[in-house]
């Protein structure tokens, strides 16, 4: 829950500048104009810095990044998964 809350706050501060409106956790960032396409880089930077995620180009899809729900799922699954040992 904390991750989701933190993501939500980031989206509200960073993309909506406090204009929360009735932002739903499953609202599409792209369809609702919440994140413009150049803004996705900010989201990626945040995920990498805040949660230490290492994201490959193949991860960077709307399926993974296009709503608070989706991003929360991505972060949770990555944090839960054991680090690959090579």
């Amino acid at each position: 829950m904390q991750i989701r809350q933190e993501l939500r706050q980031f989206v509200i501060d960073n993309f909506l500048f406090g204009r929360e409106g009735d932002l739903k956790d499953d609202a599409s960032f792209l369809e609702n104009g919440i994140i413009d396409s150049t803004g996705v880089l900010e989201l990626i930077a945040f995920l990498e810095e805040r949660f230490g995620l290492e994201l490959a180009e193949t991860d960077l899809t709307p399926e993974n990044l296009d709503s608070i729900d989706k991003v929360a799922r991505l972060v949770e699954s990555r944090l839960a998964a054991p680090k690959e040992v090579t």
Partner: peptide
């Protein structure tokens, strides 16, 4: 840069 660094899926969406 803001366009070039975009992931392909987002570039397409834009």
């Amino acid at each position: 840069d803001g366009i070039q660094q975009q992931p392909s899926a987002y570039l397409e969406s834009f």
